[in-house]
C-alpha cells in the first residue's frame, strides 16, 4: 500500500496541533465545553492520523506505549481523584479546588475534577489508539498475505 506524500506531510503538520488542541479541551473541560472524553478523542485522532499516514508498525515502534496498561493507569488516576473526595471530604468524588493567583497570568484553577478528567483523557486516548492500532495491524497483515 503506497501512502501519499501530501498526506504524510499534512499528518505531521496536524499532529502537534491536534495534541495541543486536545490539551486545551482537557484543561477547560470542568466548566466549559470540553473535557477528558473529547480531549482524549482529539488526542487519539492525531495518533490515528499518523497511523493512516505511516502505518501501524512504524507508529507503534516510535510511541512505545502499552495502551492496555495506560488504560488502567488512567482508571487509577480517576480513582485517586474520587478517593480524595472520599477521604478529605464528605463523599466519593467530592470536589476540591486549589485556586492560586499567579501575577501576570491570572487565576489558576486546579482540582479533583480536573484530575478526574486527566484520568478519563488517558483512558479514552489509550482505548481509542489501541483499537485503531490493532485493527490497522490486522489490515496490514491482510495486505501482505
Amino acid at each position: 500500500m503506497t501512502r501519499s506524500v501530501f498526506f504524510k506531510f499534512l499528518a505531521r503538520l496536524m499532529m502537534p496541533v491536534l495534541l495541543l488542541f486536545s490539551l486545551v479541551l482537557l484543561l477547560r473541560g470542568h466548566n466549559q465545553p470540553g473535557g477528558g472524553f473529547v480531549g482524549g478523542l482529539v488526542g487519539a485522532s492525531s495518533i490515528v492520523l499518523m497511523t493512516l499516514a505511516y502505518g501501524a508498525d512504524d507508529v507503534r515502534a516510535r510511541l512505545r506505549i502499552d495502551f492496555l496498561r495506560a488504560m488502567f493507569y488512567g482508571v487509577g488516576i480517576a480513582l485517586v481523584a474520587g478517593l480524595i473526595g472520599l477521604i478529605f471530604g464528605d463523599a466519593f468524588q467530592d470536589a476540591f479546588w486549589w485556586k492560586p493567583y499567579i501575577q501576570g497570568v491570572g487565576r489558576l484553577e486546579a482540582g479533583t475534577p480536573l484530575l478526574f478528567d486527566v484520568g478519563v483523557y488517558v483512558v479514552v486516548f489509550s482505548v481509542t489508539c489501541s483499537i485503531v492500532m490493532s485493527m490497522a495491524e490486522e489490515g496490514e497483515r491482510d495486505d501482505v498475505g
Binding site: 496498561r69 488502567f72 493507569y73 482508571v75 480513582l79 478517593l83 472520599l86 463523599a91 466519593f92
Partner: peptide, 19 residues
C-alpha cells in the same frame, strides 16, 4: 464509607491485577 467499598475494591483490584 463502607458502602462505597464494593465499588472501590474491585476497581483498585483491577488496577493491581496488572502487575
Amino acid at each position: 464509607m463502607l458502602i462505597i467499598l464494593p465499588l472501590l475494591i474491585p476497581l483498585a483490584m483491577g488496577i493491581g491485577a496488572l502487575i
